[in-house]
């Protein structure tokens, strides 16, 4: 197999929307709680009611 960066987590900026994270990461929340995730969408607009995750609020907020 060729050497690739396949397992390196990717952070994709979605236009007027969240940050799409693909790959294994550890998320440390504001209260110090740790979560292992393989894929997630993190809010960039500041309006989600389920922070740090995107809940679609960016659409109504007009980010």
């Amino acid at each position: 197999m060729e050497i690739s960066n396949n397992n390196i987590p990717e952070f994709k900026v979605i236009a007027n929307g969240p940050l799409h994270v693909k790959g294994k990461i550890t998320l440390i929340n504001t209260n110090g709680e740790k979560q292992e995730l393989e894929e997630t969408w993190l809010c960039r607009c500041g309006n989600s009611k389920n922070k740090p995750f995107c809940d679609g609020s960016h659409k109504t907020a007009g980010f």
């Binding site: 690739s4 960066n5 397992n7 390196i8 990461i25 550890t26 998320l27 440390i28 504001t30 922070k51």
Partner: peptide, 17 residues
């Protein structure tokens, strides 16, 4: 940089209050 997956350091995302 070109890191192979073996060398890659695990990723943490810390959410700042």
């Amino acid at each position: 940089q070109n890191v192979t997956s073996q060398q890659a350091k695990p990723v943490t995302i810390q959410v700042m209050r």
